[in-house]
């Protein structure tokens, strides 16, 4: 398949098209995904960058791209924004901050909408990441907005998660402080040039029980002035090395494989299930669901 060959040579058009075919659940997607270079995928590093709206995730990502390019890495970015639940449309604006790299062929950027998938996990995002990795991207960054469960599901596609916060976004921080260290490997206080950064650092520092751990995992940046980004990248690479050594990375990939498989299976079952729902049924929905699952089981054993 020509598309597959071109994709592995790093051709922009083919990479873009391959992602669309998966995203639109085109029949050709299966062959593309089956033919991806697994060695490149295994060797790539997938970094999730998340945080509340407007804290500077895209600016930070653009800065990291610059530093990764200095190290001669090919970089992929999957930037995810929510679809409007009303219209199904979306405005995908993260690319604006990354336009400095628009003409660099070794920087692949793809904006994606969540397309309102139930369960939250954006399965096509995982496929986009692997397509980029197969095209030779050594590092792939997933940017996603938010601090809720849905966004964290998307971030579970990553080998490592960077949570970006900024002064003035304190309400979000208070609400999530309890579980923050379970989901974030690194905490970045961006906009450290703004008032309130010290207080935020103090607040977040209190989450750690170990000061050495805190000093490793809590960082400050001014992304718009490229301050502190070299440190963030150093820590990312340090952790990546550690995660490979202690098997964390393999475990996380197995976990995200299970998550994504579940998401795709649900996605594929949905039209079947909706065809089996009798309109205006008089029984309880839970009982109706049981009947449907039974029917599906019979169908598949025939």
């Amino acid at each position: 398949m020509e598309l597959l060959q071109q994709l592995h040579r790093g051709d922009s058009r083919s990479i873009g098209r391959a992602i669309s075919l998966v995203e639109d659940q085109d029949p050709a997607a299966a062959r593309i995904l089956a033919g991806l270079d697994q060695t490149r995928i295994e060797q790539s590093l997938v970094v999730g960058i998340t945080g509340p709206p407007g804290v500077g995730k895209s600016t930070l990502t653009a800065g990291l791209i610059r530093h990764l390019r200095d190290q001669n890495q090919r970089v992929g970015i999957v930037a995810i924004d929510p679809s409007s639940p009303v219209s199904g449309g979306a405005i995908l604006g993260d690319r604006i901050r990354m336009m400095a790299h628009a003409l660099d062929r070794e920087v692949v950027v793809r904006s994606m909408a969540t397309r309102g998938r139930l369960g939250g996990l954006c399965a096509s995002a995982g496929a986009a990441v692997r397509i980029m990795a197969a095209s030779g991207c050594q590092t792939v960054i997933i940017e996603t907005v938010g601090v809720g469960q849905t966004e964290m599901d998307i971030i579970r596609l990553a080998d490592m998660t960077v949570m970006v916060l900024a002064p003035g976004f304190g309400d979000d921080v208070q609400a999530m402080k309890a579980g923050i260290l379970e989901v974030a490997d690194l905490l970045v206080i961006n906009k450290a040039d703004q008032p309130g950064a010290d207080k935020l650092a103090l607040d977040l520092g209190a989450v750690f029980t170990d000061t050495a751990d805190r000093d490793l995992r809590l960082l400050r940046t001014v992304a718009s002035e490229d301050r502190g980004l070299d440190m963030v990248l150093d820590r990312i690479m340090l952790m990546a090395k550690q995660f490979r050594q202690d098997n964390t990375l393999q475990k996380r990939r197995q976990h995200s494989f299970a998550l994504e498989t579940m998401d795709w299976a649900m996605e594929m079952l949905r039209p079947k299930i909706s065809g089996l729902i009798a309109p205006g049924g008089k029984t309880d929905p839970r009982l109706a669901a049981q009947e449907i699952v039974k029917k599906l089981g019979q169908e598949s054993s025939q």
Binding site: S83, S84, V86, S87, G88, G89, A90, I91, L92, G93, R95, I96, M99, A102, S111, A113
Partner: peptide
């Protein structure tokens, strides 16, 4: 915005390109 409200996914690249 109008395209988004009509159901399109709109990649916006900003000014001076």
């Amino acid at each position: 915005r109008a395209l988004r409200d009509a159901g399109f996914e709109v990649v916006y690249t900003g000014i001076r390109r």
